[in-house]
């Protein structure tokens, strides 16, 4: 790495993916970033319209729905959010299927270090992490995806499955009543509302802690939006992947141009806005639940 490339790095960007020694390395593909954006948009569309419905009695909910343009509009936004959710689900499943078909080594596609499938190392990392929490070990070194990222990835699958099925039951009750007893819709309602709170809790206590609030990431990490991060970031967050790229001589293929200032600002703003709305929603749920 030359000094010139280091100087090209903007000095004081907030995002940790922009910190330290360059050059930039691609981490996420265009599709990955688009899918994550779809997850954000649908998740927030569903939450801002669904959480007020769950706490309909609260005055917060009523003002929120008025601001959204009424409960019918909110209902429409919620259903559009559902459609977007199914869209990203099937886009991703399609991409995985296509990737599997094209993969030269199908076994390593599903079980290799670039896969989301949990493996023995993830279990070891988890145990080491708890020792790290107690100050008895170093933090484990992660490959392309840490066990936390895999956990959240499968969490989205789990959530989409539960919310998707229970949501469709409530969306088309006349159709599903051909196969289900009436109380099934009551249970679907309970499940949909409770699982929503779980999703809210996981995203705002675990995901945001992992990607925004912990000291290593504070105050924000926009790598999922810009798709690229500095070498220093890679060495710190995904050292095994970085070493593998270097060892296999593939780092050069992954070198990315620096993030343009204008797009960086937009993504950072989006990240902070998402964090702010999220905290607001958590506050809303706490206030409504206590009232």
């Amino acid at each position: 790495m030359t000094g010139g490339q280091e100087a090209a790095l903007p000095p004081r960007r907030l995002s940790t993916s922009e910190h330290g020694e360059g050059p930039y390395v691609w981490r996420f593909s265009r599709l990955d970033r688009a899918l994550h954006l779809m997850v954000i948009v649908s998740f927030y569309a569903l939450l801002v319209t669904g959480i007020p419905l769950l706490f309909a009695h609260s005055s917060w909910a009523q003002s929120a729905i008025r601001m959204l343009g009424g409960v019918e509009t909110a209902g429409l936004i919620h259903r559009l959010g559902a459609i977007l959710t199914f869209t990203y689900l099937f886009l991703h499943l399609g991409a995985v299927l296509l990737g599997a078909i094209r993969a030269p080594d199908r076994r390593s596609y599903f079980l290799g270090p670039n896969s989301m499938v949990p493996n023995a190392k993830d279990w070891q990392d988890l145990k080491q992490m708890f020792r790290y929490f107690r100050g008895k070990a170093e933090m484990p070194l992660f490959d392309r995806f840490s066990y936390m990222e895999k956990f959240e990835y499968w969490g989205v699958f789990w959530g989409v499955a539960i919310m998707g099925v229970s949501g469709l039951l409530m969306w088309f009750p006349e159709f599903f009543a051909q196969f289900l007893p009436g109380w099934g819709f009551n249970v679907a309602t309970i499940l949909h509302g409770r699982e929503a709170l779980l999703a809210l809790g996981v995203i705002f206590t675990i995901h945001f802690y992992n990607v925004n609030l912990r000291p290593e990431k504070w105050p924000i990490d926009v790598v999922i939006f810009t798709g690229r991060a500095t070498v220093e970031y890679m060495k710190e967050e995904h050292p095994l992947e970085y070493e593998r790229l270097v060892a296999e001589g593939r780092l050069a293929d992954r070198i990315a141009p620096p993030t343009p200032e204008s797009s960086y600002r937009g993504w950072a703003l989006l990240g902070f806005a998402a964090l702010a709305i999220g905290m607001f929603l958590v506050l809303f749920v706490v206030v409504a639940a206590l009232a």
Binding site: M129, V187, I190, R194, T205, I206, Y209, R214
Partner: peptide, 30 residues
């Protein structure tokens, strides 16, 4: 028919959130 699913689903959500937050909480503490 509603009571038991309600109990189970509530326990699952509270339990899952509590369990996952052990991770976040210990990390925060460290």
């Amino acid at each position: 028919l509603l009571f038991w699913p309600w109990v189970i689903v509530t326990a699952y959500v509270v339990g899952a959130l509590a369990l996952f937050n052990v991770h976040t909480g210990m990390w925060l503490w460290r």
